[in-house]
Design a protein around this nucleic acid. Structure first.
Lengths: 250, 250
DNA sequence: CGACGGGTTGAGAGGCTTCAACGTACGTGG
DNA sequence: CCACGTACGTTGAAGCCTCTCAACCCGTCG
């Protein structure tokens, strides 16, 4: 069985003038959104665009020195660990506008691999430069703290387990959150989420086997709560899904 | 069945001069540890000591406006949510030196209740004052980013599930981490952790029932890997515990 | 066409929850 | 001082959920 071995690429840097922030897919969720134009203008010269990176490319490896954040412009990234036996566990998905690197700030090196889920372009911005700018611009500092706090908050939800049907609750919780998060991106149209990741990756992130995820989605479809397609999920009745979730985590 | 209903108390504030930072139980892990004395001196006047708070007191309720961080001086806190049916789920434990409130930074209000596990004293420090100080003192800003990042990193581990014996892996993982975290506190002596929380609270945090935790600890004791006491756990063979953990999450 | 990866389905085994009962420690009130 | 209630923890039995292993379908791609 030949394991698909991702390869680290030399990052091809492109001067950031090519695309303005306002044209960026990730703008509404980005670091500079909601910040005064003259302040965010300070960030622009410090960032360089890079990409596109293709599926399963590795942007960084576990243990690499952390020197720069990435901001996802378009596409999707995943962070993942590899166990001694080679099993991979997805730790987090990053979507357009997301700041990548917060988890590396404390120890100065990347704690996990960072791989491409779907063809991705990023802004790369020096960590030192960013914190320096934050030093002189309260808006940026505040925004950074807010983003860090948001990440902490979002991660907490993932801890829900206990009680029977824990897997179902995790699926419901994440799919609903995914729908909100991907609003106004190419990945959501109407009530349908075009899943950027494979269902196997999603299952890994949710801490279950692909088989279990498959069965849960089928069951939800049988209850007519969702539509279950190979590459997409249709949230037919979100109100009812929320009820199911609350019931599942009673 | 009468539910033990925690009560919010009016916080009794005490001028911070009473106890110096260097005398504080939490100092080595605290925000101001490792920061130049003249810089951390700026923080001192902004913080007020409060407490002691007794078991099951609520320091804040879900939805309360967030205006100040707490730093645990002594004792232990837990954040927890209450489901519609009244079931409580512990989300996080805070130990001496820990900064409490990061999860509230993004939305300006506390996302969970904050309750007392063991009699606790805290430093209370205005969020606005803290971020202002961070604005003028790179060391403080850097320390804050580092603490936020550390929290994000620590939370990621909790996501491990999948594979059979997931509960055992979570127990091993957390107990080992707890041992490291509580080094040089009153809660660890030799290879023994004096559990500050009840085993029921610990089970809740770990996302399993008290029964399951009890059985897992008994089994680990039967394998002579730990000593299992009502209020403490003896990590007899940490090297072997690490091996068991790696095996469990193969 | 044939290989391959992703996804689905089925059967079996085992882990974890549930429900129930019991033991212990502790504080209260008689 | 002792009876009693309560909370925490443990133990047992039963059932369900989830993992494992296997086979199969289907799309893409060489």
């Amino acid at each position: 069985m030949k394991e698909c071995m991702p390869v680290t690429l030399d990052i091809h840097l492109v001067k950031s003038q090519e695309k303005s922030c306002l044209e960026c897919d990730g703008y509404v969720k980005c670091l500079c959104a909601g910040v005064d134009p003259e302040v965010s203008a300070k960030l622009k010269p410090l960032s360089v665009q890079a990409g596109p990176f293709l599926e399963n490319d590795l942007l960084v490896r576990r243990g690499d020195r952390f020197s720069a954040f990435y901001i996802v412009q378009s596409g999707v990234l995943r962070s993942e660990t590899v166990s001694i036996s080679g099993r991979r566990k997805v730790k987090w998905f990053y979507f357009p506008g997301d700041l990548v690197g917060m988890e590396a700030m404390s120890c100065g090196q990347w704690p996990t691999d960072l791989a491409v889920v779907k063809t991705t372009r990023v802004c790369k911005i020096s960590a030192q430069a960013l914190t320096e700018v934050a030093q002189y611009h309260p808006q940026i500092q505040q925004k950074l703290f807010s983003l860090f706090g948001e990440r902490i908050l979002n991660q907490e939800y993932s801890l829900a387990t206990d009680f029977s049907e824990a897997a179902k609750a995790r699926v419901l919780e994440y799919v609903l959150k995914l729908y909100e998060r991907l609003q106004d991106t190419e990945f959501v149209s109407g009530s349908i989420i075009d899943l950027p990741m494979t269902k196997t990756e999603l299952a890994s992130y949710l801490g279950m086997t692909p088989e279990t995820l498959s069965r849960i989605l089928n069951k939800l479809e049988a209850e007519d709560l969702i539509g279950n397609q190979p590459q997409s999920i249709d949230l037919r009745d979100r109100a009812q899904l929320l009820v199911s979730l609350e019931y599942a985590q009673r």
